[in-house]
Design a protein around this nucleic acid. Structure first.
Lengths: 394, 394
DNA sequence: AAACTTTGTTGATCGATTGTATAAATGGGA
DNA sequence: TCCCATTTATACAATCGATCAACAAAGTTT
């Protein structure tokens, strides 16, 4: 069975084009939409009236005349419904509430120490529950819940493996659907980050964007031709296990010389521990501590960041040469060390990539203020809402 | 301006679905097509009649009854037109003539030694001209010319750089369009190979397929979600310049330790030359000679193939971990050494890739009998014919 | 031979875009 | 102030393509 064409499909396509246009360029008049999209005036009129009926668009009043009748300006009704977005981390749960435009209305972070299912799942449900309770009443209510998870998923939303949480075969989709009776979408953390950056971050104009999540390990969210690339078994993006040293250290994945052995938060802390025992006692080492030490001038720590940065740069160079993307965003924990790792990364990238590829390329660090993973997760929920129930074709 | 929907689009979609169904599963009756596609009987009838009118489909006679009126069986008219496919190599021009189904009707190889434009372009034009002259007369005649080129192209069919031919900024599209007044499509060699394997080779069922062209250098054709991936500047697939040894040999690309320094035909021959001067005089070394020597038991050559195979395996492992493809096809010159490099490649891949990724993965060598590059090139011409003038939406 | 099945066509209907005419609102100029 | 061109938006008929239903054609089964 194929997706065959009929008038309903045509209408869905055009309605989605009209709504997208309003979302991106409002305020707009009907006639401007007609010109921008190439659709006939009458078509636009009737579609707009349906969208107003559905409370997704509203009239804001008259605009300025350009020599004739004054246009009626239209706005997207961002507040017709809200979406929940969750970044499920290794020691925290970040829940955000966004409107249909992806603007953050509310947010709350909860921390945990034990990662066992019995502890985390109830906390997760409670956190979402609390956020739903705080959401204002709207036409469509909570239209969906999107979650970003640090692990490998199948296409039905089961977590096959989340090594840093110690989870295996957790049917999170079922658990949350049962708990809330609301559509749930689950996405890998790095993929969600890529989506977030594409929709709300630095990558709005880019069709090819790669989100490099440098945390305990390294994961990558690959967005090609505007869509997440998943591979044959939903398991692409395991770039942490690139071989960058043919005869390097042994990795638990079975290979040798894997990238994340040299360039992750784990690598950083492990190496720091070797010389910091004497330098500063047995304090708990984490990345924020190390950044603080570098800021206050510790040469050894600065040198360590430099080294880690170079290794990150090697992997990123491989990514660049392979994917020739428009944008690379470095996110997750190590992004806070931007100040200390940016230069070595850039230096290596300039050495190891083609000039004509670099010309189309930008590299940036995810802003610590906005959580692109939670934003991306919320966006998947919104998108699913539109494609399943209302407009949108994809 | 977007691609908006109207009835013409609907018809194009459905007509293309009907034709594709016939191409893939003929002989078929109208009613079977209706069931397979989900389209209404009447719709199928009218579309089929148009296709018959256009000479793209014909009735072959009655099929067997299944308890009622006997069906009229339909066939795709593969011979309604022919396409030219060209593999422009570093020392040869292979021209093939295919029907609309991609079956090779005729083929001819011409060899050349000087790669200067003045020599090669006239030869190319003459070779194509000769093939066109030999083609039988059909309804649509020669519907297009497709060319696979070992170099970097822009989106208008200009060769920006073909290092092994010594060409730069050659507007091949214009040259050939002027010469033949027929639609011309130009594609990178490795991309054409990927398309050929997808349509006619081992990859028919696969959406994610990577063609690794191991010749003088290493190029890759990346087919994701059923489409060639080109990257931001049409320049992805430069995987020959992966870094696999962080402190390895210097490469002319400016980096160090690039894959193709260790795993290409160049690497093979260079290393062979070092010890073969004394072993067999100053014969001209090429890959066929080396394969022959291995076949007759030269331990050193066998060991060399083993080593090159292992390095190929390392790069392929990286590709696998990154793309998680269904299929990898190893093509171009080194494919003839399958017997000697297959095992080391496989051994390394098994060591360096995840088991769950391998489960969905096949690795094969391009068959030397069929040239997937020329086939893929011819297919791009056929596809362009259908999408521009007749049915097909993409 | 009658009844049922399968295949394929034909004409009516539906639904969506488009084209044309028209109405409404406005600015510019005589 | 009045008239007209212009811009905006709607209304209604025309058109095109898919679907639906009825029917004809050609079998098979009982």
């Amino acid at each position: 069975m194929h997706i065959t064409g009929d008038q309903h499909l045509v209408k869905k396509i055009n309605k989605s084009i009209v709504l997208e246009t309003i979302k991106k360029k409002s305020p707009l008049s009907r006639s401007q939409i007609s010109e921008l999209t190439g659709l006939h005036k009458g078509t636009v009129s009737s579609l707009i009236n349906e969208l107003i009926e559905e409370d997704l668009v509203f009239e804001i009043g008259h605009g300025l005349s350009s020599g004739g009748r004054r246009p009626v300006m239209l706005l997207f009704n961002q507040e017709a419904g809200y979406a929940i977005g969750v970044n499920l981390g290794v020691n925290f749960i970040l829940v955000i509430l966004t409107n249909l435009q992806g603007e953050v209305i509310d947010e709350k972070t909860t921390y945990f120490e034990q990662t066992s299912l019995d502890v985390v799942i109830p906390m997760l449900i409670e956190a979402i529950q609390a956020m739903i309770a705080r959401a204002p009443k709207t036409t469509y209510g909570i239209i969906g819940i999107g979650i970003g998870v640090p692990g490998v998923l199948d296409d039905k939303g089961t977590i096959l493996l989340a090594p840093n949480l110690g989870w295996e075969n957790v049917d999170l989709h079922r658990i949350l659907t049962d708990a809330f009776q609301i559509p749930v979408t689950i996405e890998n953390e790095a993929n969600a980050g890529a989506i977030g950056e594409k929709e709300f971050g630095f990558g709005k104009e880019d069709a090819n964007l790669i989100f490099v999540s440098v945390g305990i390990g390294i994961g990558t969210g690959i967005l090609l031709n505007g869509e997440i690339y998943r591979g044959a078994s939903g398991f692409s993006g395991e770039m942490g296990h690139f071989v960058i040293e043919t005869n390097g250290k042994k990795c638990k994945c079975g290979s040798k010389g894997c990238w994340e052995l040299y360039a992750s938060e784990n690598a950083l802390i492990e190496q720091a521990r070797q010389f910091l025992v004497d330098e500063s006692g047995d304090q708990t080492l984490d990345i924020n501590t190390l950044v603080a030490m570098a800021d206050s001038g510790s040469a050894r720590v600065i040198h360590l960041f430099n080294q880690i940065g170079e290794y990150i740069g090697i992997g990123i160079s491989n990514i660049i040469n392979m994917f020739n993307p428009e944008l690379i965003v470095i996110g997750n924990r190590l992004a806070v060390a931007e100040k200390w790792i940016k230069n070595p990364i850039m230096r290596i990238v300039e050495q190891s990539t083609f000039p004509f590829i670099r010309r189309q390329l930008r590299i940036s660090f995810a802003s610590p203020a906005t959580d692109s993973i939670a934003l991306g997760a919320a966006y998947t929920a919104t998108k699913s809402f539109f494609s399943n129930t209302k407009v949108w074709v994809d």
